[in-house]
Structures are given as structure tokens and as C-alpha cells.
């Protein structure tokens, strides 16, 4: 199988009547990770949604091959169900959930609506379920995570890339990943 690929050509994004960024280009090959940094409102989340194909770019094009997984601010789990059952739905959709989180295993039977902010984020990481060698888009993945959970997520992203996957991280926080490329979105503001 050919490895994953993700390339942006001259992307521009408009929200309302404001152009957030323009002329953004990059190309990622298997194993590469890219961090998109920028202040609030510079279009990090919009960029990720464009890369995921959920939002049409104002100009430019995205070229991608390989399955795309997205971790954003939402938690697409049924709030009234116990965590394990809510995750099991996505397990049935995807065949299997590849990730494990020992910290969440202890609260398997707690309904999703009672989870804390950090626990919700960790559940969302499991739900996004990046495929081996696929593209993983992460929007502010460290929000709400404690130091230890943040380290283990970084390790998981590093593993994903080492396995031939591509990761794009939108975050204003520093990330410790080997060979991480960074793009400051502010430089592409018109």
C-alpha cells in the first residue's frame, strides 16, 4: 500500500467577510508531523477542517491520500451511555478502536456526561481512532490534559508518525516531537 500523503496548495480560508489566511502551502510525507501555531482566531481549527475535507477552502486545494482521523473540540459520544458502550459504537463502525487508555479503563461504566474535561479529551482521543499509516489531525489536543496524560498523548502521536502516519497538530502550546515541523499561521494572514 502506498503511504499517506497530505499536501496543501496555496490555501486560503475565509470566515464571514474576513480572510483568515492565504497562500498557505505545505506537503507532508509518511512519518512527518506538522504543528500549526497561532493566536486564537487565526484559523487553526478552520485549517484542520479544510484539511479534513469538512470545510471548503476559499482558494487553493488540498490533496490527500489515506484515511483521515480528526480530534477536535467535540466529543461525539452519547452522553447518557457508559463510556465503554459509547466508545463501543465507534468500535462497531470502525471495526475496532486501535488505542488504549489505561486511565479510562477504570471509569468504563461511568456515563459520558459525568466525565471531567480531561477525561472527555482522553475519550475523544480514543474516539478519533487514527488508522495505522493514516492522517491524524489534532485540534488543541492538550487542552484539559494533565502533565502525564499530555506526555502519553505526545508519545502516542510520535508512535503514529514512527509507524508511517502523518500528524497535523493545531496548538499554541509547545510540542516535544522528533522532527516536528512548524507553521506559524500569523505569517499567512493577509
Amino acid at each position: 500500500m502506498e503511504g499517506a500523503r497530505l499536501a496543501a496548495h496555496d490555501l486560503a480560508c475565509r470566515r464571514g467577510d474576513r480572510v483568515l489566511f492565504a497562500g498557505l502551502s505545505f506537503a507532508l510525507t509518511p512519518g512527518e508531523a506538522l504543528q500549526v501555531s497561532g493566536a486564537n482566531g487565526t484559523g487553526k481549527s478552520s485549517l484542520l477542517r479544510i484539511l479534513a475535507g469538512l470545510l471548503r477552502p476559499f482558494a487553493g486545494a488540498v490533496e490527500s491520500s489515506g484515511p483521515i482521523a480528526l480530534l477536535d473540540g467535540n466529543l461525539p459520544l452519547d452522553e447518557h451511555l457508559p463510556l465503554s458502550e459509547a466508545l463501543a459504537f465507534w468500535g462497531r463502525i470502525d471495526g475496532t478502536l486501535s488505542g488504549r487508555d489505561a486511565g479510562l479503563a477504570a471509569i468504563d461504566d461511568v456515563p459520558v456526561r459525568f466525565l471531567s474535561t480531561g477525561q472527555r479529551k482522553r475519550a475523544a482521543v480514543l474516539q478519533s481512532n487514527p488508522r495505522r499509516g493514516g492522517i491524524w489531525l489534532l485540534d488543541e489536543p492538550l487542552n484539559g490534559l494533565d502533565t502525564q496524560a499530555a506526555r502519553s498523548l505526545e508519545a502516542r502521536i510520535a508512535d503514529h508518525c514512527a509507524d508511517g502516519g502523518i500528524a497535523v497538530i493545531a496548538s499554541h502550546q509547545p510540542f516535544a516531537l522528533p522532527g516536528l515541523r512548524t507553521i506559524a499561521l500569523a505569517e499567512f494572514a493577509p
Partner: peptide, 16 residues
């Protein structure tokens, strides 16, 4: 509720 919680986004990413 599904739209708000991002279910449809995740379905779309999975090609559903």
C-alpha cells in the same frame, strides 16, 4: 444533538 456533538463530521471522515 448529533450535529453539535460532531457525529456527522466523524461519519463524513469515515466515508459514511
Amino acid at each position: 444533538p448529533d450535529l453539535e456533538a460532531g457525529f456527522f463530521d466523524q461519519f463524513a471522515l469515515r466515508g459514511i
